[in-house]
Design a protein around this nucleic acid. Structure first.
Ligand SMILES: NC(=O)c1ccc[n+]([C@@H]2O[C@H](COP(=O)([O-])OP(=O)(O)OC[C@H]3O[C@@H](n4cnc5c(N)ncnc54)[C@H](O)[C@@H]3O)[C@@H](O)[C@H]2O)c1
Ligand SMILES: NC(=O)c1ccc[n+]([C@@H]2O[C@H](COP(=O)([O-])OP(=O)(O)OC[C@H]3O[C@@H](n4cnc5c(N)ncnc54)[C@H](O)[C@@H]3O)[C@@H](O)[C@H]2O)c1
Lengths: 229, 229
DNA sequence: CTCTAGTTGTGAAATAATGCACAGCGTGAA
DNA sequence: TTCACGCTGTGCATTATTTCACAACTAGAG
């Protein structure tokens, strides 16, 4: 068995999340075992990379039979999740916020959006997608009461910086930021920015320059252009 | 002057997009010059990295005065953009699709969402956010007619794979995929997946393990945890 | 039982990305 | 004019990440 408490790289965490989602789909289909090369296709990686990732969660592939799906899924969950379901807040219940709320409100096993916040008086106090919308000035109070560890930030770019300050001040430990603004902090709160404008500009850029196809001599036929993010 | 037609790395393209957006904000504020260390803060990188990125666009910094904002912004645009505004399609006008449509419909200089597609009869034929919604079976026709190079994919995960096939078949050259499904192709169409579930799970993971703070001996005080994506 | 085919786990090599550190230059002060 | 300062451009070191390649193992066929 591999070393248990190694530091797991960000990239690996990303892929583990993707593996797990796919494993659950395979479970539904009734499959019980899976090979590294099958998982590799999903993240457009190599079998070796998959095996490396899976080693970090306790590597128990079986030669010739591959990995047992149920076990593997559970092991990934043990690593990624926490014993208690995590409470998440949504800040900014605008167009994107509402879409996210609907999306993440599906039955998730490991987290739950338990509160939303906005500073628009029309929204505060209402119940949106089954979640109470609080006024933004209640942030610290509610985050403390509900033990919220993570926040999804979907406020306008101008408001983002202050919102982050408030969130950190309120005790949140990670922020998933959708505002097109890359925010810095010197606390050790984890900030993950999803910059869709950047992503689209990048896609447009590579739509032409498919010189991007560096596809060197060794004809890697399984890896097709794609990136996880 | 640096070599012009080098292959520019994906990461660099991402950062260039972010730099440019920030440069435009600075322009509005009336600033005319900027230093690498100022830009570095924005992407939570180092000044050296910024300079390296900027060299690829023709490196025009002036000792002691930094970079001229107008010039730099134009140079990045010349590199990232194309002479003609690019036409983009949106596939799937659901909750997320509509939010994206509103968001990207703002006056963008370098691209424009010119058509949307859905297979829900209630939506087809209507005008949504000022854009005509076509039936999905019109895809190939419209993509050809309107010279659409890039597509934003916001259909349910089950439909994503086929939609990608159709898009590639229709001649699209890049896809920004929001379905939580990592899609593979052996064409050299660029597929960029934005996997929000993964991003949130990752954020939740690092909300606790702030052992993530590997912050080794050399006390990097300016770099704060953050990632571009 | 033996052999073959196919898979895992992993050291080591290769590649990619980042950061350091300094030469060289422009600017402003004296 | 001269000098000190601070910034750029960049070779090189460092670190992170991916890939190769192979020994060890398992199952199944004969
Ligand atoms: N809509 C999209 O598809 C999309 C895509 C990419 C990025 N974004 C970004 O996501 C963010 C939200 O986008 P949107 O389209 O939902 O905008 P929106 O204007 O529809 O919603 C913003 C919401 O935030 C609320 N708000 C403003 N300041 C606040 C504060 N200080 N505290 C709490 N709430 C506050 C507003 O009342 C509003 O309800 C923006 O930063 C936008 O740039 C949106
Ligand atoms: N809503 C979110 O915030 C969110 C967040 C992350 C990811 N996603 C993903 O984005 C996608 C869209 O999410 P949503 O919330 O907008 O879902 P939605 O159900 O509201 O919208 C999906 C739309 O796609 C249309 N559609 C279905 N099949 C189609 C096809 N073959 N061709 C064209 N159109 C088709 C449907 O008619 C519907 O209008 C999903 O894959 C979802 O997992 C959504």
């Amino acid at each position: 068995m591999a070393a248990l408490k190694q530091k797991i790289s960000e990239k690996t965490v990303e892929r583990l999340s993707v593996y797990r989602r796919h494993l659950k789909e395979l479970q539904k289909k009734g499959k019980t075992r899976v090979y590294s090369h099958e998982l590799a296709q999903i993240v457009a990686g190599t079998p070796a990379q998959v095996r490396r990732d899976l080693m970090q969660v306790g590597g128990n592939g079986c030669s010739s039979k591959g990995y047992e799906i149920n076990l593997l899924s559970d092991e990934i969950s043990e690593l990624l999740d926490y014993p208690e379901k995590q409470n998440v807040a949504l800040i900014g219940v605008g167009n994107l916020g509402r879409a996210l709320l609907g999306f993440f409100s599906g039955s998730r096993e490991n987290f739950d959006i338990v509160a939303t916040f906005d500073n628009d008086p029309d929204k505060c106090g209402r119940i949106i997608c089954g979640r109470r919308c609080y006024n933004a000035d209640q942030l610290k109070k509610i985050v403390g009461e509900k033990k919220i560890s993570t926040a999804i930030l979907a406020v306008p770019a101008e408001a983002a910086e202050n919102a982050v300050k408030d969130l950190i001040d309120a005790g949140v430990k990670a922020i998933l930021n959708f505002a097109p603004k890359h925010i810095t902090t010197n606390s050790n709160v984890f900030i993950q920015t999803i910059d869709m404008t950047m992503a689209l500009e990048k896609a447009i850029y590579f739509s032409h320059k498919n010189t991007y196809a560096k596809e060197s001599q060794h004809e890697r036929n399984r890896k097709n252009y794609q990136s996880t993010f």
